[in-house]
């Protein structure tokens, strides 16, 4: 009887159980690392706080422009800070993967009968947990700096969804590049590409305020939709970008499509290593 059980082929349910168990093992490892190596986590927290504080203060005057969607600069720049922090939290997965590849830990994972899917799912879930923690701290700090939501709890939910979405996209992209390059060459591309993609959108100012080439690029960038989702509950009720299904739908769609693309890129790159 025992022989029959041990030799039967792995069914879908077993595979699912293995994937989930391995994923949660990797989530646990990542969270323990966060506790043991706070220096690796602190930049993810420092970046959104710095962005929010520095941009709100430096560019305070832009809220005085006619038609600007909010009169509080921190309302405008808090979602930017959170988005940047989330993107880099996601990309940081690529850095830690490169470290694992270089120190041999990753080879041990590949030698074990671990589900390949869990090697992507586990770290992404760990990133979601970290981003949620960072978002909670940023929301409190923003409130203390004078940020006030205009759609109640929905404001926070939309910003959090946008942050988690950006983190997922960043994670897929970071993991994919790390699998492809397998050394620190990939790190520079990860940072640069995320940085440029984020800023070629309405990251700093609304479309109406932009001029020239940036307006053309930002108008078609899907990241603009994600920022609209993130800020829907922080702009004035009179703003055309205020909380409504039509204003959040585009952002949700952009997150789903870009996440699917980046995670597929990560899985494909992982398969290349295995081959």
């Amino acid at each position: 009887m025992q022989t029959i059980i041990s030799t039967r082929s792995i069914g879908d349910q077993d595979l699912h159980t293995t994937t989930m168990r391995s994923s949660f093992g990797l989530v646990k490892r990542s969270l323990i690392n966060t506790r043991r190596l706070p220096s690796a986590f602190l930049p993810s927290l420092a970046m959104p706080m710095f962005n929010m504080i520095a941009f709100s203060g430096t560019f305070f005057a832009i809220t005085k422009m006619p038609g600007f969607p909010t009169d509080r600069s921190v309302n405008w720049f808090m979602p930017l800070g959170l988005a940047m922090g989330s993107a880099f939290s996601g990309v940081a997965l690529g850095f830690s993967l490169i470290r694992d590849l270089e120190n041999g830990f990753y080879d041990r994972l590949r030698m074990s009968p671990t589900s390949r899917l869990s090697l992507v799912v586990g770290p992404v879930i760990a990133t979601w947990i970290r981003v949620t923690l960072v978002a909670a701290i940023v929301f409190v700090a923003a409130f203390l700096l004078g940020a006030r939501p205009t759609s109640g709890v929905l404001s926070y939910i939309c910003s959090l969804i946008a942050a988690l979405g950006i983190a997922t996209i960043g994670a897929g992209w970071g993991l994919g590049l790390a699998y492809r390059f397998q050394d620190m060459r990939g790190a520079a591309i990860m940072q640069l590409s995320i940085f440029v993609t984020m800023f070629l959108s309405t990251a700093q100012v609304p479309l109406d305020v932009m001029t020239g080439w940036l307006h053309t690029v930002a108008r078609v960038s899907p990241v603009t939709n994600i920022f609209r989702l993130a800020r829907a509950g922080w702009v004035n009720e009179s703003s055309p970008d205020y909380m409504s299904w039509s204003n959040v739908y585009g952002g949700l769609l952009a997150i789903v499509i870009l996440s699917a693309l980046s995670l597929t890129f990560a899985m494909r790159s992982l398969q290349q290593i295995d081959n």
Partner: peptide, 19 residues
């Protein structure tokens, strides 16, 4: 890059009081 980005982002802010 930042200069070109800033020029497109903040090009209209030069009319603000204090600028």
């Amino acid at each position: 890059f930042f200069a070109m980005l800033g020029n497109s982002s903040f090009g209209r802010t030069t009319s603000l009081p204090g600028f």
